[in-house]
Computed example of a mutant assay.
Amino acid sequence: MTIDAKICGLNDAAAVDAAVQHGARFVGFVFYGPSPRNVSPQTAAELAARVPRHVRKVGLFVDPEDRLIQAVLNAVSLDMIQLHGSESPDRVREIKQKFRLPVMKAVKIDSAASLEEIARYDGVADMLLFDAKEPKTMKNALPGGNGLAFDWELLAGATVDSPWMLAGGLQSGNVAEAVRISGAKIVDTSSGVEFEPGRKNPAEIAAFLAAVAAIET
């Protein structure tokens, strides 16, 4: 069985091309102003035009208003909406119904207790994403893309009915171990393939996707 990968926070053509060329099955565009990876709908549309149909285009939003989602969808043909804030299960349902697109919900993990959140969204969202919860003491922390990993052992015994992907501090050097421990079938990285926050490194994208392709399950 092959492991699929998502490269998130893409904001330039070279990074998009590297992700597509080296086998990413998902590409992510961030529509969240405070993020260094934020893109305008117009820029995202230009980048999305470079993505072939077999690669799913994901738009990442954080507690978005409907008008922001609509403005993005007016410009960009997305395949999935990713919610990375504190959206409730009811809000997930509402967005699914209104915009008629699959929705992926991020669940932030930092302890066994945080696994209880999974049950709230499992079966409500079309897909879940498990990311490291940003510590309260972290300066300038973002809702995601902080380069932090959580204890993958926490997922080893978790019951999850929905498809899910693993995020949080993944890079070419640790992704194989992360898959082995967590049982993930899809992995997601953003900061792990960057020169610096908001600047993707095409060579690191290639290395990450090569490491994913080499995983034996």
Rank of each mutant, 00 (worst) to 15 (best):
P197V: 06
A5Q: 08
V20K: 08
F99H: 07
G123T: 10
K96P: 07
F195Y: 14
F150C: 00
K96H: 02
V179S: 01
R91L: 12
G23L: 01
H84S: 10
R56H: 15
L10K: 05
F208I: 05
S172Y: 15
A158Q: 08
M165E: 07
A5T: 02
N74H: 14
V124C: 11
V55Y: 13
A113N: 07
I3H: 02
P102N: 00
F195C: 08
I118R: 10
I109C: 02
L83V: 03
L101V: 07
F195T: 10
G23D: 08
G183N: 07
F130S: 05
T43A: 04
L129W: 01
F29C: 02
K105C: 04
V193K: 07
L101D: 09
L68E: 15
V16C: 04
S172P: 03
A156V: 03
Q70Y: 13
R67Y: 14
Q97Y: 05
V72R: 00
K57Q: 14
Y121A: 12
E46P: 10
Q82R: 02
V16F: 09
A49Q: 10
I109A: 00
F208W: 01
F150N: 00
P36C: 02
T43N: 13
V20P: 01
R199T: 15
G169F: 00
A106Q: 08
I181R: 03
L73N: 09
I81L: 11
H84V: 09
W152H: 06
T137N: 12
F29M: 00
Q70V: 14
F130A: 00
R67H: 15
V62P: 08
P52Y: 08
A106P: 05
I81W: 03
G85S: 02
L142D: 09
A176E: 11
L10F: 03
V55H: 09
K57R: 15
F31W: 06
E116W: 10
K57A: 12
V187G: 04
D188F: 07
Q70M: 11
S172M: 14
R37Q: 13
P202C: 04
E177I: 03
Q171E: 14
K200A: 00
A75M: 05
G168E: 00
G147Q: 11
A119H: 09
N201T: 01
A211M: 08
R56A: 12
L47G: 08
M127K: 03
R120W: 13
P135M: 02
G183Q: 07
